[in-house]
Amino acid sequence: MSTVKRTWVVNGERWTVDLPPGRRLLDALRNDLGLKGTKEGCGEGECGACTVLLNGEPVTSCLIAAGQVPDGAEIMTVEGLEKTEGGRILQEAYIERGAAQCGFCIPGMIMSSFALLSKTRTPDDAEIREAHAGNICRCTGYEKIIEAVKLAANRWPEK
């Protein structure tokens, strides 16, 4: 099995991996890097539990061949959130509003929230809903997640 070497910046740290190019980015993160925070819920890009940020944009890591992620790419997973001010604000807001129940969708959901608030400081209801439409939650009915995103938006750092 031929492999490719890639160097990425994951949650601010440089990682070099040597892996089959078709390995799913999800598996590379969970198994090669040991970042088990990102979850697999469906393996077909429908549930969004595996959402990570690739150069700041949310993507479903179960549908990306790791070889397609080029050298120098910046990847942020749920484990990287607490290294950022916005991430900590989001985590606190999720906790305060009771946005996590079983918690399995949260590592993906909260990355979508982070991507949204990084670009749109004061999203309206429709923008919040659209930004999270690719993340399925079966527990909460989404209401408390919307509340948490609104709370975090209020507290989001200026710059």
């Binding site: 088990k36 925070g37 749920v78 484990e79 959130l81 946005a99």
Partner: peptide, 20 residues
């Protein structure tokens, strides 16, 4: 309406499910 006791682990991606 206190926060869940397991909320922190869950929003940090630290909760350990079986496949983790």
């Amino acid at each position: 309406g206190i926060p869940r006791v397991d909320a922190e682990d869950k929003v940090r991606g630290r909760a350990q499910y079986v496949d983790d």
